[in-house]
Every structure is written in structure tokens, then in C-alpha cells.
Write a protein that binds this DNA or RNA. Sequence first.
DNA 1: GGTAGTAGCCTAGCCCTCCTAGGCAAACGA
DNA 2: TCGTTTGCCTAGGAGGGCTAGGCTACTACC
Lengths: 189, 189
Amino acid sequence: MARAGVTVDRLTLAAAELADEVGVENVTVAALARHFGVKDASLYFHLKNARDLRVRIALLALAELADRVAAALAGRAGKDALVAFANAYRDYARQHPGRYAAMQIDLDPETAMASAGVRHAEMTRAILRGYRLAEPDQTDAVRMMHSTFHGFVSLEKTGGFRHTPRTTDDSWTRTLDALDAVLSNWPSR
Amino acid sequence: MARAGVTVDRLTLAAAELADEVGVENVTVAALARHFGVKDASLYFHLKNARDLRVRIALLALAELADRVAAALAGRAGKDALVAFANAYRDYARQHPGRYAAMQIDLDPETAMASAGVRHAEMTRAILRGYRLAEPDQTDAVRMMHSTFHGFVSLEKTGGFRHTPRTTDDSWTRTLDALDAVLSNWPSR
DNA sequence: GGTAGTAGCCTAGCCCTCCTAGGCAAACGA
DNA sequence: TCGTTTGCCTAGGAGGGCTAGGCTACTACC
């Protein structure tokens, strides 16, 4: 009988698309096998286990996001760079809710170090060059930035902002204004 | 044979404790049934389904958190209130990781409106009284605050800050300083 | 205090997912 | 063309989610 031509990469991509459609929690090895017209047991030739699959989705998403952020950041500095970074981040999360959710998985340290998350962290730090912050303020600022972005995006997604009529887009713009303001004028100890 | 004396409240509490121990994703109806020395099918007399159980954990957590925040806020104003709120929030999330994770479930609008999440939102807004912000800045500031808290706590938990030596406690303190600074000096449009 | 009704638990059983063991056939390199 | 590897298969066990239908312990009311 003809082979389906399954590879780990095709598997990961299909899983990522499935995640965006039906949510990560519904990305199962069995569903993926059905998508390829193959028995679920066959996929264990390519995958270690179900967690392995989710980790691969997360790594794919991290790489894609880092690419997008890098493209958005090219040739920009200061607030311009901050806004471009933030919008690339939020847009990715909204266009790929499943991939974004998958990214939140707890990676073990070695995997995390080998992932595009490192590139991501470096780019975040690069933005702060425009704001002239020395250590340890720089680390604190990086953490605050990332917290704000991630927090906003995930609250927006789970409907945490639904009870107020104001559009989330407007709040997002103003939050970035505020972030730019603190970074420009970081409080001293 | 003697009855186990299972009630929805006891079930929810046990599930919340189980969530803190083994993670929400491992809170199963079957595991809960074992804990009460009862068959899993019996629990469907008390619960609609597995999702119902998770929603109940979320509602319990929201109520507990709102209580803690309310206690922390009593008699405080300005930055003092901001810091007390933030610490109550973060402490709860760290002491009850499973409950906190359960809180992130997507509640349907009616359930959300009837939950302690509303109280929580009101208290967040109350803090801003000390900063004299008019609408719509107030809403934007509430959203930014909540985003920062949630983002920081969840990144801290999933290990997003592990790659830098600086302690998360220090970054947290400085993030609150920065937040206080922007709220005190909210940028105009 | 007997008894009807209901609340609380049971068994049986179906479907789904995860995963392992062992087998066979297609594709490929020598 | 003939192994060897690669890719898929069947069979099956373990465990979670959930339904249907039945029995029993408790409660309330006459």
C-alpha cells in the first residue's frame, strides 16, 4: 500500500494548524493520524509521545514569532521599535491562538536554551538600547515589558477585558504609550 | 453500605487541592472519585461533566483571591495599596499554582459576571482612585495593571525568567515601582 | 413508626486517547 | 537483485469521560 509520506516537520506543521483551529488541548495524536489518513500508532514512529508533539508545536511557534519580531524590528529604534515589537507579538498571538497557547508549555532548561526563545529575549533587550538602561534595571525592564505583552494578550484572549466597553485596541495603544513613558523615565531606587 | 458524604463543595475543594498538588491538567473525575473512595460514575450525580468541575475550581479560586486582595487593601491607599494588591495576587498564585492555572479557563459571560472576578475588577479600579485618573485612562490603566500582574506571575511560573541570574523578587519590586511611576504620571494623548 | 420518595451510590458498558509489541511491505543503496 | 532500513500496519492494554439503568440508605410525612 502507498505511504502517506509523514515526516516530523509535516506533522508539527499540521499539528500547529490544528491547534489554531480547535485549540491545543484538542490536538491529539489520534486526530493528527486521522488527518494524515494513518493509524495513530504509526505516528509513534515519528514522535516520542504526545508531550513531544506539543513541545514541537511550541518550538515552531517560538521560531515563527522570533522571525516576525525580527522583521518588524528591522530599521527601527526607540518607541518605534517598541510598538513594532509589541504589535508583531500581539498580532501573532491573535492570528495563531493555538500556537501561542502551545508556547506557554513548560520547556525543560536545555530545550528552552536551544529554542528561539533566546533570540526573542535578545531582541527584547535590543529594544532597550534606545532607552539607555543599565543593569540591573535593564533586566527588570525586559521582564516588565514581556509581562505586559504576555499578560495583555492572554487576558484579551480569555475575555478578561470583556466587561468594559472600551476597545482593547485603544487600551493596547495607551498601554504602549505608558510603557514607553516608564522606560524613558525609569524610576531610580 | 455507608455513604461517602460527597457534596459539590467538598468535591470542589478537594479538586482545588489536587490541582495545587498535581496540576489542573491532572485533575480528573476518576482521580477525584478515588480520593473519596467512590466510583467515578457516581460523581456525575454531583457534576455535569469534567469541564463543570474545572469551572468550579476557577470560581472557588476567584473568590479566594478576591478575599485575600480585599484583606490586603483594607486601610491602604496610593502606592501602598498598589503594592499590597500586587503582592496578595502574586502570593496567591505562588501558593496555589493549580488554582491559579484553573482561573485562566474561559468562562462564559454570564458565569463570569456572577463570579468574584467582578469584585476583583472593582478593587483594581479602587486602587486607581489614589492616582486620580479619569476615563478612559482609568480603564486603560486597569488593563495595564492586570496585564502586568498576570503576565509577570505566569512567566515566572513557566520559567520565562530563568535565563537571567537576577532574582524575580527584585524585578517584581522594581516593576511595581515602575507601575507606580506611570500611574502617577500617566501620559496624555 | 411504617412507608413513599428521593438522594447517593453502584455495575455495566461504550467511546476515546495514549502507547507498546511485533509484523510486513515499500523504497533504497550496494 | 537483494538485504536493510523506513514507514506503516494490527492487536491490545490501561485509563479517562460519560450514559443508562438499578439498588439502597436516608428523610419526611401521614
